[in-house]
């Protein structure tokens, strides 16, 4: 474990000097959280007449009878709640791409692999270095969002309809699974590209299913309840197993040295 700890500390020590990377990593969750809270506040003050016509409103009986401004808060609050799932995908893909491809471009992989460090320790450390900040930032942003919604909601009922047990489960369960998936994909992509930005751009496509979920909920095609979250978690688990097996196969000492560099 001390090798993993040494690597993690080195990663974060390096990250401390990368202001641009820190800003780009923090900016997205910060902006999304602020915009989400501001949108909930705004919809509570300026109700949108069209909100009642949305598919999302029509399919959910819990929303029946809500005043228009409260309805607006619930719809926009729920939609932004789903966008929080982009954080555990976006943050690790930036960090892992930088971390793994960075080792390639700086040609530091060979000296690293020449130490008694086991290959699995390197993989775990690199993954954790990207995974932990992503999960913690997502949860922190989620906690701020919960606080913001609590202050902005026009009624306790609105708060309860936005911050549902299903959404909390989504953030707490699917968040880490999505982050793990992003890391495994970053490892897969990093074995093929030599530029962190290319790796990030390719990894960027993983947010597309979240956007699909966003619009599906808005149109009333999907309702994010506990059953849906558990099914999504199961699917993510399977995808994680698949990508991790592939990533572990690629992440072999010899392959890294002879094919990655």
């Amino acid at each position: 474990m001390h090798h993993i700890r040494a690597l993690l500390e080195k990663e974060w020590l390096e990250l401390r000097h990368e202001r641009g990377l820190i800003i780009s990593t923090l900016a997205f969750p910060l902006l999304l959280t602020i915009i989400g809270i501001v949108a909930v506040v705004a919809l509570g003050r300026v109700p949108d007449q069209d909100t009642a016509q949305l598919g999302a409103v029509q399919v959910d009986p819990a929303l029946a009878g809500l005043p228009l401004e409260q309805l607006g808060q619930v719809v926009v609050g729920r939609q932004f709640g789903l966008l929080f799932l982009m954080m555990p995908l976006f943050i690790p893909s930036v960090l892992a791409s930088y971390s793994i491809v960075g080792e390639k471009t700086r040609r530091t992989l060979e000296p690293l692999l020449a130490t008694p460090l086991a290959t699995w320790e390197l993989l775990v450390a690199k993954s954790l270095a990207a995974l932990l900040p992503a999960v913690l930032l997502t949860w922190l942003a989620g906690a701020i969002y919960v606080g913001g919604v609590a202050l902005a909601a026009l009624s306790p009922q609105v708060f309860g309809l936005i911050i549902t047990p299903a959404w909390l489960l989504l953030l707490l369960l699917c968040g880490p699974l999505l982050a793990l998936l992003a890391v495994a994909l970053a490892v897969l992509i990093s074995s093929r590209v030599n530029d962190p930005r290319s790796a990030q751009q390719i990894a960027g496509v993983v947010v597309l299913p979240i956007l699909a979920l966003f619009f599906s909920q808005l149109l009333g095609l999907v309702q994010v309840n506990i059953a849906f979250v558990l099914a999504m978690a199961l699917l993510l688990l399977l995808l994680n197993v698949l990508t991790l097996v592939l990533a572990t196969r690629l992440f072999q000492r010899e392959a890294i040295l002879t094919r990655w560099t």
Partner: peptide, 17 residues
């Protein structure tokens, strides 16, 4: 690996550290 030391073709150092 524990008993050998290696100077690789490129120094491979962490520039920020």
């Amino acid at each position: 690996r524990r008993n050998v030391g290696i100077l690789t073709e490129t120094p491979g150092l962490y520039d920020k550290l």
